[in-house]
């Protein structure tokens, strides 16, 4: 197990490097630059700006300087777009926000999704099953950029119960709508996966044995069936995490939460190279870590798996 983790971490290093090189190449190929505007800057002003941010250096030098700064000093450089802040400031600002509503969305999605899936599996081929499947497929196909404005319309304008956006340091009123909008599609996926793997487990020999012993259903489910049925759900959580981060773009646009997604898209549009790189690397690292954690959990739950 220890060796496995080490090996995975060893792969992580070239992965991050490839990520950096790839994003750098994309950005250098990009037309436009961070200091273009409707009103082209006089060449001298532009030259001053480029010198200030080191953009007048050759590409390979910029890239190697960047890598050295990141590795040795954990310094991602200044943002081009927000002149009084560094990339670290931007990330420290946006990431906790994304993480907060992402975390709650996750909790909601897992709890509701698993419950729906389990109910559907137990009551297989009854109306409960059909309703649960209907809800989960419906939730999966309704884009969250349609859901978000509907939520605001209903809960803010018509009912007046909740604020239509903002963050205010993450007070609960501001959390609810983003969490609903973000969690539904995961919830749906989790429900579908849970249902099918639960069905499979319920047909397995050891469950039949347990039934034969006359154990009550809820004990069979909680004590025996749930753990093995969770394996496929676990492996879904890795990709779901990445989807959560990208999905935060929609949440940030509609609820003005100020998370990382909005920073990323804005930076891509305005060629804020430094912020793009910072966020890409951050998400890359987190993806690797998250997948690793999932794999370790997997091994822990399923004793058959040996690394």
């Amino acid at each position: 197990m220890f060796n496995f983790v080490l090996k995975r971490l060893a792969i992580a290093i070239p992965t991050i490097l490839i990520l950096i090189v790839l994003s750098f190449m994309l950005m250098f190929a990009a037309p436009g630059g961070p200091f273009n505007s409707e009103r082209p800057l006089p060449p001298q002003v532009l030259a001053n700006l480029e010198a200030r941010y080191g953009l007048d250096q050759p590409y390979w030098k910029q890239m190697s300087d960047y890598v050295v700064n990141v590795v040795t000093r954990f310094d991602f450089g200044p943002s081009f777009q927000y002149r009084d802040r560094t990339v670290t400031d931007v990330i420290m600002q946006g990431f906790p926000v994304t993480l907060t509503y992402g975390f709650w969305s996750f909790v909601v999605a897992v709890i509701v999704g698993v419950s729906l899936g389990v109910v559907a599996a137990i009551k297989h081929n009854t109306w409960l099953d059909y309703v649960a499947v209907g809800i989960s497929v419906g939730a999966q196909v309704l884009p969250n950029f349609v859901m978000a404005p509907i939520l605001v319309l209903v809960f803010t304008l018509w009912l007046g119960w909740l604020p239509g956006g903002g963050w205010q340091g993450g007070q609960w009123q501001y959390l609810i709508l983003p969490v609903i909008a973000l969690s539904t599609s995961y919830m749906a996926s989790i429900a579908r996966i849970t249902r099918s793997s639960m069905l499979e487990v319920l047909n397995a020999g050891f469950i039949r044995t347990a039934r034969a012993k006359g154990l009550p259903t809820w004990r069979i489910i909680l004590g025996h069936a749930l753990k093995p049925a969770m394996l496929p759900v676990l492996s879904y959580l890795g990709p779901a995490f990445v989807l959560m981060i990208t999905g935060s773009v929609v949440i940030d646009v509609y609820f003005s939460t100020g998370g990382i997604g909005q920073f990323f898209v804005n930076s891509a549009f305005s060629r804020d190279y430094a912020v793009i790189m910072g966020i890409t690397i951050l998400v890359g690292v987190l993806t690797i870590l998250f997948n690793l954690v999932v794999d370790v959990l997997y091994a822990w739950i399923d004793p058959k798996i040996r690394y």
Binding site: P149, V152, T156, L157, G164, G165, D252, V253, S256
Partner: peptide
């Protein structure tokens, strides 16, 4: 508030 429709609602 990026989205102007959202802004009007609010």
């Amino acid at each position: 508030i990026n989205d102007v429709n959202q802004s009007l609602t609010r």
